[in-house]
Design a protein around this nucleic acid. Structure first.
Lengths: 121, 121
DNA sequence: TTGACACATACCCATATGGGCATATGATTG
DNA sequence: CAATCATATGCCCATATGGGTATGTGTCAA
């Protein structure tokens, strides 16, 4: 099988930088497609396609308004992403990096005192 | 162009559920490949491939240990993911959902009074 | 040395991607 | 009505995916 569809879940949908841009833009409020087209500097069909993906994973809602279609952010599906990545936050704090270095050193020392040092052939 | 390579960044690398599983497993500490193979129940070459992707985006480090290769988590590259998604957290809190409903209602009322902007309540 | 083990890589394949371009659909205006 | 604006969809294509299976490379054991 190929890669999972972009519409599989928020993880896949959000892997596309343009789709992230769209969500960022919509964070400021409802917007018609043309606004996004101008904002992203992409061809209109492209934007529509990205919006479709976002719709399919429930990250945006649409509303008809005359001849425009207003898209609105619906961040809910991002929650699993947040919840998953949140658990790694501690790992990149400075304290943790330090711990990493310490462990590294311990390992080195351990190897050094490892009785003699054989290994040949 | 096709979809961006999985090795483009953490966003793409992490879109694969198996790779997330691997990172979860490595959060517990250094592990040899076979451990992961057993843990994920995947074919060994598959795991090696996923590990390669994770290596290329810097999410894991390797260390040789006899005939094994010990993989270690390096969460740093996840930071952009966290930072991005974090900004949406507020949106799915209950208060925000409520606000959403209120706005929705306001809109409805607005549409109802269309040409005669009347105050009501 | 030979063999077993741990892991990585090479190929083969079906699939869906994102972009480009043309066109269909639907609402608004003249 | 026709013309125009705002979006969506259809089709074409190159690409890299993730899985499978076979094999290469390096290490340890007998």
């Amino acid at each position: 099988m190929a890669r999972a569809a972009t519409t599989t879940d928020a993880f896949n949908a959000v892997a596309e930088p343009r789709r992230r841009q769209i969500l960022d833009a919509l964070a400021g409020g409802e917007r018609p497609v043309n606004d996004l087209v101008a904002l992203l500097g992409l061809a209109q069909p492209l934007v529509s396609k990205h919006l479709r993906v976002l719709r399919e994973v429930g990250l945006v809602n649409v509303r008809d308004d005359g001849r425009q279609r207003l898209y609105r952010l619906n961040a809910g599906p991002l929650r699993p992403v947040y919840d998953w990545v949140k658990n790694f936050e501690a790992q990149w704090t400075e304290r943790f990096e330090q711990l990493d270095v310490v462990l590294e050193e311990l390992k080195e020392r351990e190897l050094g005192s490892e009785d003699g040092h054989g290994g040949d052939q």
